[in-house]
Simulated scan of single mutants.
Amino acid sequence: MPALTFRNALPADAARCFEIETTAYEGDEAATLEKIATRIALYPEGFLILEADGAVVGFINCGCAYDVVMSDEAFKELVGHSPEAPNVVIMSVVVDPAHQGKGYAKALMTEFVQRMCDLGKHTIHLMCKEQHVELYARMGYAYVKPSPSDHGGMAWHEMVMVL
């Protein structure tokens, strides 16, 4: 088993994260390099990197809001983000396809949830495709509703974890 380490993202991580994002996500659902760089610059505390033997293999990024509107596309560029807000909105949970199936997503999520608890956050919200609803339910998220978002031209489901 490789040595796993977690750390907050640095501006130099943007290109590798973009590479992972575009490899792992379908079509237009992947964030642009600019969006990833913005998320790192504006809220590095909410951008968690997973390294396996020193190589970046996955990440989670988020923003925080007082009022969560999961279908708000501008929020994906952290428009309306307030670092002190109690509600976390995950934008990406992604592991390089070459490293999937090793439990890395669960390890990443476990660390992320602990860090958000340590920051005093109250809830974590995410949107996922139907095939991932059960996975997130096993991680402690409750199903909320089908999302009005059509991000990337796909159907999404909203889920929440109360911390």
Rank of each mutant, 00 (worst) to 15 (best):
Y104C: 04
M139H: 08
G46D: 05
G54D: 11
Y43L: 10
P146A: 11
M1Q: 08
C117W: 03
I60M: 13
T22P: 12
C64W: 02
M70H: 07
I40K: 13
A74T: 09
T123N: 12
W156P: 06
T22E: 10
M154L: 14
M116N: 06
T38Q: 08
G140D: 02
C64K: 10
S82V: 13
D28Q: 15
S71H: 13
A31D: 12
G153N: 10
A30C: 11
V160D: 04
L108K: 05
M154F: 06
F59N: 06
V89K: 08
I49W: 06
G46P: 14
M154S: 11
F112G: 01
E51L: 09
Q100Y: 02
H99F: 08
L42A: 05
M116L: 03
Y66Q: 11
G27D: 06
A31G: 14
K145H: 09
M159F: 00
R39D: 02
Q114E: 14
P148G: 00
Q100F: 00
C117H: 07
H151G: 04
A52S: 15
C117I: 08
G58W: 03
S71I: 03
L163I: 06
H122G: 05
D67K: 15
E158N: 10
L50H: 05
A31Y: 07
M139G: 06
G58L: 05
P148V: 00
K145D: 12
M109R: 01
M139P: 06
L108T: 06
R16Q: 07
V89I: 03
P11S: 11
A74Y: 04
M154V: 01
L119W: 04
H99E: 15
T38D: 05
D96E: 05
E45A: 15
S82Q: 09
I40A: 08
E45N: 07
M159D: 12
L48S: 09
Q131M: 08
L78Y: 06
M109W: 04
H132E: 12
T32I: 01
A52Q: 08
A55H: 07
P146W: 00
L4T: 11
